[in-house]
Every structure is written in C-alpha cells, then in structure tokens.
C-alpha cells in the first residue's frame, strides 16, 4: 500500500512512502503513524483520509494495492 501525505504532514513523514507493516484499517494506519512520530498525533487526528481518491472513515478496511492519501485541514483561499 502506498501512502501520500501533504502540507504540514511532510514535516513528519516522507511525501510518499510504502507501508512496511500490514495494517488492516485507516484507524490502524493512523495509530501506526502516531507510534512512529508521536508529535504528529494532533495533526493526524485533524486529518481526512481518502483511498483511491474517495474520502473514507477511520474504520475503512484497507486492501492490498490501495493508495491512501492523508489530507490535513484545508487552508486554501
């Protein structure tokens, strides 16, 4: 599974990376990333997640080959 992050999240993670361990859900992914970079927790908790370009809930179950994007709160305009 490929993960892509944006904006402030790039201060904690590479812009794109492959998941090394198996995670079952978006919630599992979030918990693994927080374990990896504890200081990213507050930002990660405010993010939206999308799989294959559709928004998903935290209980979404991930499949092999999914591309996950993690979207911090918008600040356009």
């Amino acid at each position: 599974m490929k993960v892509q992050v944006f904006a402030g999240l790039k201060e904690y993670f590479e812009p794109t990376f492959e998941l090394e361990k198996d995670v079952q859900s978006i919630d599992g992914l979030k918990r693994q990333l927080i374990r990896l970079r504890p200081s990213s927790a507050a930002l990660l908790e405010s993010c939206r997640f999308a799989v294959n370009d559709d928004f998903v809930d935290v209980d979404y179950e991930l499949n092999e080959g999914d591309t996950i994007v993690i979207l911090p709160p918008s600040s356009g305009g």
Binding site: F6, A7, E11, S46, P72, S74, S75, G76, G77
Partner: peptide
C-alpha cells in the same frame, strides 16, 4: 468560496520576512 476554503485539499504555507515559515490552518472547525 467558503466551501473551497474549508473542504478542498489545498494548503498554504506562509513565508515570513524573518525567514521562518508556517503551514496554514484555516479550517479548524473540527
């Protein structure tokens, strides 16, 4: 414009004249 600012995945990074920078967080509604 309200929906674009709150919902669309676009982000600003402010570059200040003192050389520092900060990713913006317009939408703190959550």
């Amino acid at each position: 414009i309200d929906r674009i600012k709150h919902e669309v995945p676009i982000w600003k990074c402010e570059f200040f004249s003192d050389g520092s920078k900060k990713w913006g967080g317009n939408c703190n509604c959550h």
